[in-house]
Design a protein around this nucleic acid. Sequence first.
DNA 1: GACCAGGTATTGC
DNA 2: GCAATACATGGT
Length: 258
Amino acid sequence: MEFGKLAQTLDCGQCFRWELQPDGSWKGGTGGKFLHITVENFPQVLRDGCWAEYFDMGTDYEKIRRDLCENDEMLRKAAEFAPEIRILRQDPWEALCSFIISQCNNIKRIKGIVARLCGAYGEPEGAGWHAFPKPEALACRSKEDLLRLGCGYRAGYLIDASRRVAAGSLDLSALRELPLGEAREKLMEIEGVGPKVADCALLYGLHRLDAFPVDVWMKRAMDRLFPGRAPADFGPYAGIAQQYIFHYSRNHSDLFAC
DNA sequence: GACCAGGTATTGC
DNA sequence: GCAATACATGGT
């Protein structure tokens, strides 16, 4: 894993709290953990247990990529565009909220809304950085409070999610133990969480690497580049294949012009 | 100003 | 089942 290729992982659309600094370093984090990654401290960051886990250093992505791309020229092409993509082990609650916000939205505005939520209701962690608000911190807000932060019609969805998690009727960690389909059903009990957002929460928040979110980009990419293929055909690491395909498609929109 | 952006819930055939 | 529509809001 190279410092110079961090963008492949931090800017491939799976997370919304990292910002590239003018000097090439990265500032960001997940949940309540902040980090400033520089070329100097990067090796040491990867030896820190907590951040090594975040970057999923225990998973052999090179081997998974080889296996996925064997006998699959199109996937090989997509993966070669950003072969250093890793699926981060993000804070599950933050990932769920981020992808609730992502619906019918663009990455720049998603980042802005997340930053405003953190600034308004997240604990200050120093250096001007705020943790993502805990479920309890959002559960006691009104829809109007979140509308003021620009959440739009997703405001009510965030409040419903936060009340379920804060009350304990939805235990995100417990979803790790459930079969994928059951975990998905539990998430979809939240108002405003359908199959796509549930799959994003599972893949990016709970590290269920077999989850395969299908948004408009993925629908187009699957129709055009992988006709006849179903998500399950990609196997237990379908989620990683999804990320290669998603990122490749986002950066080759010319492929989909009529 | 219309149109679009990593959807979802509701409604009407 | 499946197409149409509303839902907030900021950027182009």
